[in-house]
Simulated assay, not measured.
Amino acid sequence: MLTTTQILAFLLAAVLLTATPGPDNLMVLSMGMSKGRRTGIAFGLGCALGCLSHTLLAVIGVGAVLAASPVAFTALKWAGGAYLIWLGIQALRHAGAVRVDGGNTGQQAPAEPLRRTFAKGLVANAINPKVVLFFLSFLPQFVDVSRGSMELQLGLLGLLFTAQAAVLFGLLGYFSGSVGGWINRKPQVGVWLDRLAGTVFVALGVRMIVAR
């Protein structure tokens, strides 16, 4: 089992890493600003729970195989990048089609179901190979082999990381979406925020593909 010292040290490092601006933060921020707090929270929770898949990979050692196989890493990197680019293109195509509060008027399209937004966040995080390798290198640093099963400790640490990420991403989605009412009064602003969100997703996808 984990000691109090292990837990506190790990949570401090995890919170600092999660709060540091990065792709996940940018995606949650963009979704919250362009679609509102409920969508931002749903996407953020999806991103956070995507960490569970990386925890599982770290526990069973698949992450080590991925790290040792350039072909597998490249394939997953391309798949993840293509998915983010697809999300970005969809946001650009439908810019301004949905009001931030989820309401619709006239011929506007209905708001996307929150479960679908959650799934997008889940997949976007789960297929990021860099996050897999991050978990593989980060979690073991807080394992104490004298405290028993390494696999159990890795699993518990992964759950702790997921929990704190869910809280931070949820707060980010909530507060970034607080501008929703103002955007509804200025539809053109919503169009440009959709375009901004789409551009962020495309840029992150391209970055994932070309990064070494």
Rank of each mutant, 00 (worst) to 15 (best):
P113Q: 12
L8F: 10
M33Y: 13
A203C: 08
T117K: 08
D101V: 02
A111W: 10
L159K: 07
L8R: 09
V167D: 04
K120Q: 14
K186S: 15
R38P: 01
K120Y: 06
I41L: 11
A67Y: 01
G61V: 11
G63V: 06
S146V: 04
T117N: 10
V200Q: 06
L84I: 02
E151R: 01
C47G: 01
L57S: 08
R99S: 09
L204D: 06
S176L: 08
G198L: 11
P129R: 07
L168P: 02
K35G: 02
K77W: 00
I85E: 02
K120M: 14
G177Q: 03
G190N: 08
S34P: 07
P129V: 04
Y174I: 00
L12S: 09
M1I: 09
V143E: 08
A111Q: 11
G22A: 15
F43L: 15
A19G: 14
R38N: 11
A79M: 15
W86K: 04
M208A: 04
P110H: 10
A58R: 00
G63H: 01
A166T: 07
L87D: 06
L87P: 05
R38M: 13
L8H: 07
C51H: 15
G96Q: 08
S30C: 13
V206R: 07
N125W: 06
P110Q: 09
L159E: 04
F142I: 05
Y83E: 03
L12P: 00
A67Q: 10
T105V: 15
T39G: 01
P187G: 13
L171E: 09
L122Q: 05
Y83R: 09
V98F: 05
L29Q: 11
L92D: 00
W182S: 14
Y83W: 14
M1H: 13
L2F: 12
A75E: 01
D144Y: 00
N25S: 12
S137P: 00
L168K: 11
P110I: 08
I85V: 15
V131R: 01
G36V: 12
F201E: 05
L8P: 00
L172W: 12
R207K: 13
L17S: 14
G96V: 08
L16D: 00
A14W: 07
I89N: 02
P70R: 02
R93G: 01
